[in-house]
Design a protein around this nucleic acid. Structure first.
Lengths: 268, 268
DNA sequence: TAAATGTTGTCACAAAAATAACAACACACA
DNA sequence: TGTGTGTTGTTATTTTTGTGACAACATTTA
């Protein structure tokens, strides 16, 4: 096959099936069988490009995975179970493994050595939107006294608001953002800074922001310059790190409160 | 490593994590990190047995999979995302791939070449409990006139009864089984054969049975002698196959109806 | 019928890719 | 200076992919 043979589609589907536990050949054979019902080994070979001699062993594996059936004729003929059933079946065994793994892993996790003393001196890089949101939620819920946060409204509304409503009402919350369109949670001050957008206007759906919990924990979320999906965050309880952001917060706050561009609203 | 090193547990968990997309090393390192929070590369190496030099590249992969975070200290320290989140995250990406795959596969399946003419001459081996039950249900639902079935009550109650209740009432159903404890579906005759158990008493929870649909399709379910889980079935629309079982059915039926051991009940 | 031809299922093993393991080295830090 | 870290590159080992040979049959042809 000369030329570029540009088959991003084919590549993608192969990748997908790989993560369902199929090898390249298994994927190709299964796809061939979907196209031609009751194909022989030779036909499968012709359609899929998998070497004829390899078809048999590959089929064996697929039969064990319960996504291919076999006839008793000569030549043997093979048929694929419908894709929805196949995917469901494969996902099922994966789910099983996941549950099994989760059991064992949870045990390990519970009996782990706690070095939380030292932990607080480190600055942790967290990657992955989901991870970051989870860490953020965890940190917010742990708040005892006060939370300072600075972030765009879109992100607050999307990922934060529910958590904020659920905070213990004894926790004072100070928020700096660009707009506010919902009910303001109890014990909360909101500083509306309309030019917020100008500061990081580049990215439409920015998740970036700073979160300071009880003057002890800081989570700093940063957009990646290139890839929107690849957000990263820093989390720390270290004195220096927290202190820097506290100072930063105070500075910004003082300026904003005296600016004409700023509007202050609160839950009272 | 001499000696047996008998670690079935460790093997199992490794297999499980493998189907979640982790390699052996990735699994080992992640498990080590669960045990010791904020471990260094060397500590990970000591706990997991993974060569120290490999730890770094393995960690990189785990970070990309969003199940490990990293500190900015020297030496670098690493921490694991809690197992429930990690498994959820891994399952999530797999689910994504599954959906993507299902899309493409469904397309292939819909545009497949239909060779249903020839298909009916084959006898298909179907493996996997789920597959078999699905095929059975499909066949039953397709019934237009009559269904003959012979199977143990446990299996009927467990996997068949709902389908039977939902059959079109114009379909006549004849059942041979060992007992009947629920309402009898409409247009149905049940032949109770109390010594049914003696015939295949070996297996407690037997799924084996014969199903004849419209005198055209036969599904024969067989228990595997050794492994209960590894049931297999034959399905065919071929004349010879169907005929054999029709004859068999008639023979058995005639005998049973005149036997003192048999009790006949019906929905009328 | 017998020889020639073609197809199927199986096996053994070669080639390539992915993982795993090791060795070497530059660098930091005490 | 010496110990331990982080990085790189090279070498096994394992898994997957690919090839060729072959016996068992079936089909054609003479």
């Amino acid at each position: 096959m000369p030329m570029g043979e540009y088959q991003p589609e084919s590549e993608r589907i192969n990748e997908s099936l790989k993560s369902l536990g199929l090898t390249k050949y298994e994927a190709l054979v299964y796809m061939a069988l979907l196209q031609v019902e009751g194909a022989t080994a030779t036909e499968i070979h012709e359609i899929s490009g998998v070497p004829r001699a390899s078809v048999y062993s590959v089929i064996d594996k697929l039969i064990h995975k319960n996504i291919v059936n076999i006839s008793n004729t000569t030549p043997k003929r093979f048929s694929a179970v419908p894709p929805d059933e196949a995917v469901r079946s494969l996902m099922g065994t994966i789910k099983n493994d996941a549950d099994l793994a989760l059991n064992v892993l949870s045990n390990l996790y519970e009996t782990r050595q706690n070095r939380s003393e030292g932990r607080q001196e480190f600055i942790w890089s967290i990657s992955g939107q989901e991870n970051i949101k989870l860490k953020l939620k965890e940190a917010l819920i742990s708040a005892a006294k006060e939370v300072f946060l600075m972030s765009k409204w879109d992100f607050i509304e999307d990922s934060l608001l529910n958590t904020l409503y659920e905070l213990n009402s004894s926790v004072r919350v100070e928020i700096v953002t660009d707009k506010w369109e919902k009910k303001i949670p109890s014990n909360t001050n909101v500083l509306l800074l309309k030019e917020f957008n100008k500061c990081n206007a580049k990215i439409a759906n920015s998740a970036s922001g700073v979160y300071i919990i009880d003057k002890k924990k800081v989570l700093l979320i940063m957009d990646s310059e290139s890839d929107e999906a690849d957000t990263s965050a820093l989390y720390s309880e270290s004195y220096g790190f927290v202190n820097f952001f506290l100072t930063y917060w105070n500075f910004v706050n003082r300026h904003l409160k005296h600016s004409h561009e700023t509007e202050i609203i609160s839950s009272d």
